[in-house]
């Protein structure tokens, strides 16, 4: 039983990180209908931003950790906006495949630039928050890092929920995802909303990057590739373009993966996400919470 709870806890904290990344994929997909492949590398940049911020102003207090988190989120928000501005906006009227390839290019550029600047070897990730572990009756172990994930993720999700549902930018985002042309006709500034979406998604990815690194304690320029792909899968599983769906998909995937990893099929862990993806797309192509678009003849 404790074993089960422990695994569930580990799964939840991994899933929470997937959810944070998945939200960025899903929001960009919602407004622009394309897979932002570079998102997984923004996640990586977020982790490195945290690493270097900590070197400048080392922190082991709660507030210091949060400041570093905020700093990294702000940096990545900017990065996301710049990427969209330089690489994606000029291609907005081109085919989606062109944009997809450009996104792959941006992803590679970030990875290789990362390898050039930070070196390819993994770096130990510092403890941003005071470290403590709590042991519960029965042997359940919870670390402050896990707590950070489990507390911060719901807070970030709530903030996102508020922004999307209650603010003007959120309303504009939703309008664009329903019908971009109609949205511009009623006076929504497409460019600004898209920039905002990228900023929001990238900030969440940065948060994901830091929370992920806190628990894995090692970062490298290619660290985003696999979590990024899996988070994308989580977004599709939940129904791409659907914000609660991304969160749900992320949690689900994190939990399933953790349990498989703990079983005797642990070597197949990396394939789980893709197997899940294929099953979902074959039997419920719109995802768990998504709606299917049908081509009109």
């Amino acid at each position: 039983m404790t074993e089960f709870l422990q695994q569930l806890l580990n799964g939840l904290s991994l899933g929470a990180v997937y959810a944070l990344i998945a939200l960025g994929y899903t929001m960009v997909y919602g407004v622009l209908r394309f897979i932002n492949f570079a998102h997984s590398d923004v996640f990586m940049v977020g982790a490195f931003a945290g690493y270097y911020l900590n070197r400048w102003m080392p922190s082991d207090s709660m507030a210091g950790g949060l400041a570093i988190l905020a700093g990294s989120m702000a940096f990545c928000a900017l990065l996301g906006v710049v990427i969209e501005r330089l690489a994606y906006r000029p291609l907005r009227r081109r085919s989606r495949l062109n944009v997809l390839i450009t996104a792959i290019g941006v992803s590679l550029l970030l990875e290789y630039t990362g390898q050039f600047l930070f070196g390819a070897a993994p770096k130990p990730f510092p403890q941003l928050f005071p470290v403590r572990t709590f042991q519960f009756a029965g042997g359940l172990i919870v670390s402050t890092n896990q707590l950070a994930v489990l507390v911060l993720t719901p807070l970030l999700l709530a903030a996102l929920h508020f922004i999307v549902l209650k603010t003007r930018f959120g309303t504009a985002m939703r309008a664009i995802s329903f019908h971009p042309v109609a949205a511009t006709l009623v006076g929504i500034n497409l460019d600004r909303v898209i920039s905002f979406t990228f900023a929001l998604g990238s900030a969440l990815a940065a948060a994901g990057g830091i929370l992920y690194s806190l628990n894995y304690q090692s970062i490298d320029p290619l660290m985003g590739v696999l979590p990024g792909l899996k988070a994308f899968v989580a977004a599709v599983v939940g129904g791409i373009g659907n914000i609660p769906g991304a969160a749900l998909g992320g949690l689900l995937l994190g939990i399933i993966e953790t349990f498989v990893n703990g079983s005797r099929w642990s070597t197949a862990t990396d394939a789980i996400a893709f197997a899940l993806l294929i099953l979902i797309l074959l039997f419920r192509p719109a995802g768990l919470l998504g709606k299917l678009e049908v081509e009109k003849v």
Partner: peptide, 23 residues
Amino acid sequence: PSLRLKGDYLAIVTLGFGEIIRV
């Protein structure tokens, strides 16, 4: 899957298949 999926969805599923083969 190409019978039901298009574009970037198909891309990601075929990518997934490739990864599964590798695993």
